[in-house]
Design a protein around this nucleic acid. Structure first.
Lengths: 158, 158
DNA sequence: AATTATGGTTAAGATGCTTAACTATCTGTG
DNA sequence: CACAGATAGTTAAGCATCTTAACCATAATT
């Protein structure tokens, strides 16, 4: 039906705009309490490490979609700045594991909070939806996520 | 209600993953028919120009969220490669307007198609939703888009 | 034990951005 | 009208981040 096609296009347009706005916002540097700031790339790395404490350097690179070389450089910089520590794996002599320092957790949380304020507003507005409506929204997002997953494994390794 | 909070978190998680997957895919270089490829940044610029034929350089920069300097450099490169032409504005002597060449349209379309194949699959799956369900999905996305818009004007100029 | 795979680092080079300096043109106000 | 300030474009210099390639060390496989 024509009405449907228009509705669908409308929805896809929204999705597009949401995604592109998010990308824009996500590229901003993140100011830290007590002065200074972290670039978006630094924050992404910090996030990956915080959510995967004790991973090795290569794994962090995989999570970020960059080479182990880039991961080594980035984590080196974060270590120099005191946000993370790198220490030899306990069970073998070739891996280097990364951990957030206290300062690292501070920055991690700061960013997390920023993000959560974002999400909180959305959550508030979602409160007016019924469970049944939420289920429908979830179904839609599930479809979208599935497609993304397919594309990912199609384009990168599987 | 607790069920709701869990449902909402579930939804927000999906949204997050969709967005981050999209960001990953969007950073890939785009291969061109007939060999060669364009970097993701080049494609973004090409898209902005294609969707805003005859804009001046500064405007393209604004659309992309970069300085006029970056826009000048990027458009210069695309012009050197033959994807766009820059020509003086007809009504004044200070603006330079940008247009896609035939080759530029080719690349533009190629990328558009790639994107549309993406979207087509999603559209197919959306076909199973009723108009009423589509309306609910749209309401949700409208809320999300509104929040993004707020954040954008909060973070950038208004 | 020898070969291959895996993890990490570093150097060199590419890309794409910013700021700053400069030029040119346009606009509005006294 | 003249000129001050705003606007558009370019370029140079420098920075951040990525990649590839070379290299070393360690682990796993045969």
């Amino acid at each position: 039906m024509d009405t449907d096609r228009r509705a669908v296009n409308h929805i896809l347009g929204r999705l597009q705009r949401i995604i592109s706005a998010h990308a824009r916002i996500d590229e901003l540097p993140v100011p830290l309490k007590g002065g200074g700031a972290l670039s978006s790339k630094e924050v992404h790395c910090l996030q990956a490490i915080g959510q995967n404490q004790g991973s090795n350097v290569k794994t962090i690179g995989d999570l970020l979609g960059v080479t182990k070389s880039a991961a080594s450089q980035m984590s080196g910089k974060l270590a120099d700045k005191g946000f993370i520590v790198k220490q030899a794996a306990p069970d073998n002599d070739k891996e280097i594991l990364v951990f957030l320092t206290e300062q690292g957790w501070g920055a991690f949380q700061a960013h997390q909070n920023f993000h959560e304020r974002h999400m909180q507003t959305l959550m508030d507005r979602l409160a007016s939806f019924t469970p049944e409506q939420l289920r429908i929204i979830d179904l839609f997002l599930e479809a979208a996520e599935g497609i993304m997953r397919e594309r990912m494994s199609e384009l990168f390794g599987e």
